[in-house]
Simulated assay, not measured.
Amino acid sequence: MADVCSSEPRGSDLAAERDRDAAARATWETWSFTRQKEAARSLTEARKPETRARRLEKVLAELRG
């Protein structure tokens, strides 16, 4: 499956954080393409850095379960 975040320049922080954590990476691999895309899109559509950071933490928390 293609890595949704690797093609998004603003999604690179999600990819970097996810790849640092083996459990998060394993969970990411179980998500459907659509779920991965929506997680990345939520970050790329954030207008404020604070919103982006909050959304990143939310996605990472879901990945870490």
Rank of each mutant, 00 (worst) to 15 (best):
A22R: 11
Q36H: 02
P49K: 14
S7E: 14
E38W: 02
K48H: 15
E17W: 11
T27Y: 02
D21H: 15
E62Y: 05
V59Q: 05
L60H: 04
L56Y: 05
A22F: 05
A16R: 15
R35V: 01
E50I: 05
L14A: 09
D13R: 12
E50W: 03
R10T: 10
V4S: 10
D21F: 11
T44S: 13
C5M: 08
W28H: 03
R47F: 09
E50C: 01
A2R: 13
F33G: 02
A61N: 01
T27K: 15
D21N: 15
A26S: 13
Q36S: 02
V4E: 14
S6P: 02
K37E: 14
A26T: 09
S6F: 07
D21P: 10
E29T: 02
V4Y: 03
A15N: 12
R18A: 04
T44W: 08
R35C: 00
E50R: 13
G11S: 10
S7H: 09
L43N: 05
R64M: 07
G65Y: 03
D13H: 10
A53G: 07
E38Y: 03
S32Q: 04
L63V: 00
A40C: 15
E62N: 11
L14F: 02
E8Q: 11
R64V: 09
P9H: 09
T34M: 07
A16W: 12
S42W: 05
R41H: 06
S32N: 05
M1C: 07
C5G: 13
E17S: 12
V59G: 04
A46C: 14
K48E: 15
E8P: 00
Q36N: 04
T44A: 09
D13F: 09
K37L: 06
R54V: 09
G65C: 02
E17L: 11
S6I: 12
R52M: 11
P49R: 14
E62T: 11
T30F: 01
R52E: 13
R18V: 07
V4N: 08
L63M: 01
P9N: 08
E29W: 00
E29R: 01
R41N: 10
K58P: 05
A53P: 02
A2V: 13
R55T: 09
S6M: 08
G11E: 06
R35I: 00
R20W: 00
M1Q: 04
L63T: 00
